[in-house]
Simulated assay, not measured.
Amino acid sequence: MIELFISSFITFFVVIDPPGCAPIYAGLSAGAAPMQRRAMAVRAVAVASLILFVFALFGEKLLRGLGIELASFRIAGGVMLFLIALEMVFEKRTQRREDRAAKVSADPEADDVSIFPMAMPMIAGPGSIATVMLLMAKNDGIERSAVVLGAMGANLLLTLVALLAAGPIMRVLGTRIEAVITRLLGVLLAALAVQFVIDGIVEQLR
């Protein structure tokens, strides 16, 4: 169970990327009052948590309703995560997030950034939704599912801490260290994505 928690925690950490969300949030909430920044951070993580928990609990039933096999979803999810990994290694993901943040900042009516773009798609994006559904489908049983949900919850809590401390974190890390961390995490995610694809292919061939 400890190994499952560690592997799930690392997977969610790489996909959700709390250190990567912090600088984006710091830029988006730069003009807000401290109390408003804290409120938006809590709201963003709360909404993202709700979205991810819904897909964790009912995602498999949704797939069945659409006539999609779990093996097919594993392959598709693995490919999606691999593309995200490539973006992380070549820093395309950070650039895309910054471009999205710049568009939101340019809109004078978009004062509250907690729902869009923070909760979705930055925290509860396609990658994290696919990850939670894949891990829940792979780990049957109440105990193993609870471990996966616990790992996801720990990452969401870490994301909340990162958003609340976005300013100090950016001053400590700096852009160069953040870029190195992002690339290392991208390599790990690529390996995990390949494993998802292999598992899906093996299950299809049985």
Results as ranks from 00 to 15, higher is better:
I129P: 04
V147E: 09
E109Y: 02
A110H: 13
G150D: 07
R144K: 11
D111V: 15
M133A: 07
M152K: 07
E143I: 12
L134C: 14
G127T: 00
V113H: 12
V147N: 03
S128A: 15
E109D: 14
S145W: 01
G150H: 03
D140S: 15
V104R: 09
A137Y: 02
A119S: 10
I142F: 13
E109T: 15
S105K: 15
M120C: 12
S128K: 04
M118Q: 06
G125T: 11
F116N: 12
P108W: 10
I123C: 11
G141H: 08
A102E: 12
A151V: 02
A154T: 14
L134G: 01
M133H: 06
A102C: 03
A151D: 12
A110N: 10
A130M: 10
D140G: 15
T131E: 09
A154K: 06
A106C: 00
I142A: 14
E143R: 01
E109W: 00
A154D: 02
R144L: 08
A154R: 04
G125C: 11
A106N: 10
I123T: 13
E143F: 04
K138P: 01
V148H: 09
I123H: 04
V104C: 06
M133R: 04
A106R: 10
M118H: 01
G141N: 04
A102T: 09
M122Q: 02
I142R: 08
M122L: 15
G150P: 01
L135C: 12
F116K: 07
A106W: 02
S105G: 00
I129G: 05
P126W: 05
M118N: 06
M133I: 13
G127Y: 01
A151P: 10
G125E: 08
M120E: 11
M120L: 11
A124Q: 00
A106P: 03
P117K: 06
V113Y: 06
R144I: 00
G125V: 12
D107V: 07
S145Q: 15
